[in-house]
């Protein structure tokens, strides 16, 4: 981690400790937009740390932004940082600037005709109801287009994820301004999917680290049979298993951070598949260690584990990415399997 990144990490950690308390997360789950938190993240430039200045960002490295997502996930920050970052990057590629209000991403089925009439719908649009705009990919008559549209100009049906976060359905039938429609490459949907999977992997790594920390702490505070449960070997061994899964996730996520600029498909697939697998192991153990207390909405363990259960399914669950890796690796042939592996720096 370079100095800039250490600074981001420390600043964010201070800021989120103050502004993203468990009460704030609960409030968001009860329908209250964390406007104060968003405004602060935006004004400090953290929300778009890795987006070019010309595009309204802070001009840091892409890694800076992924670090922000990693840290924010440790606090279950109930704001669309990942989507706003992806939208910011996609708009920056078009020479456009993302707004101050959060922008989200819609992945669905959209078409746009030559008169710029956009129609279509998408499910599970993260935080849509609290966003100003939506960025999406649509099929044009002569290739793919990237479109931006105000949330107010869509029909929105509210929905919630297992984590209690907005995952709304939107549908659109409206003519867009030429200024809001851009030519995009034919791989735009694939690129959005990769960016989505990459950000979710990094977020899972952050939330997993926090889950381990909470579990270690709880085991030291909770006492049964006259001693803290952290003294029981069975509990120690469960925490050691979690530590192994968390270490693997963190390193897989680090790999994604380093190669995000090139959107390396296999790195992202490995990250999503590996962190997703770690979620199953760690949420199981963390809940076991926390006993009934962890099964309540009172203890903030649920903020982490419920998000982990949501994120592992978004932008492709493990199986989809495992298949992609398998197809790539088998193509090299058995006798080159090792070379294929060492080529994955």
């Amino acid at each position: 981690m370079n100095e800039q990144q250490q600074l981001i990490k420390d600043t964010l950690s201070r800021l989120l400790t103050d502004l993203c308390t468990p009460q704030e997360v609960d409030a968001a789950e009860n329908g209250e937009w964390a406007g104060n938190l968003w405004q602060t993240l935006n004004e400090t430039g953290l929300a778009l740390a890795g987006v070019p200045e010309t595009a309204g960002g802070s001009g840091g490295d892409l890694e800076d932004s992924l670090l922000v997502l990693h840290e924010a996930a440790r606090f279950s920050a109930p704001v669309p940082l990942a989507e706003h970052f992806i939208a910011g990057l996609l708009l920056a590629e078009q020479g456009a600037v993302v707004g101050d209000a959060p922008t989200t991403i819609a992945v669905g089925d959209f078409e746009i005709d030559d008169a710029l009439n956009l129609s279509g719908s998408a499910e599970n649009v993260a935080f849509a109801r609290w966003c100003g705009e939506i960025v999406l990919a649509a099929r044009g008559t002569a290739g793919m287009k990237l479109c931006r549209i105000a949330v107010a100009e869509t029909d929105l049906t509210p929905g919630l994820s297992v984590a209690g976060e907005p995952r709304d359905t939107i549908s659109v039938s409206r003519q867009l301004d030429a200024a809001n429609v851009f030519d995009a490459g034919d791989d735009i949907e694939h690129r959005i999917r990769l960016m989505g999977a990459a950000t979710r992997s990094v977020m899972m790594a952050g939330a997993l680290e926090s889950t381990l920390e909470m579990s270690v702490q709880y085991s030291q505070e909770r006492s049964q049979f006259g001693r803290s449960i952290s003294k029981f070997q069975a509990i120690q061994h469960q925490l050691a298993v979690m530590a192994g899964e968390v270490a693997a996730s963190t390193l897989a996520a680090d790999c994604i951070k380093e190669s995000f600029a090139s959107l390396n498909e296999v790195d992202i697939a490995i990250g999503k598949a590996r962190t997703g697998e770690a979620v199953s192991v760690c949420t199981d153990l963390a809940h076991g260690i926390h006993g009934a207390m962890g099964y309540t909405l009172e203890h903030s363990l649920n903020h982490r584990t419920r998000r982990l259960w949501c994120w592992r399914d978004e932008y492709g669950a493990e199986k989809e990415w495992q298949l992609l890796i398998g197809q790539k690796f088998v193509a090299g042939g058995a006798d080159n399997l090792w070379a294929t592996i060492t080529d994955q720096s």
Partner: peptide, 18 residues
């Protein structure tokens, strides 16, 4: 079968990084 190869490879690549 391919997904299993992918799953095990994801483990292996990550362990190698560790």
């Amino acid at each position: 079968q391919l997904a299993l190869l992918g799953r095990l490879s994801a483990h292996l690549v990550t362990l190698r990084r560790m």
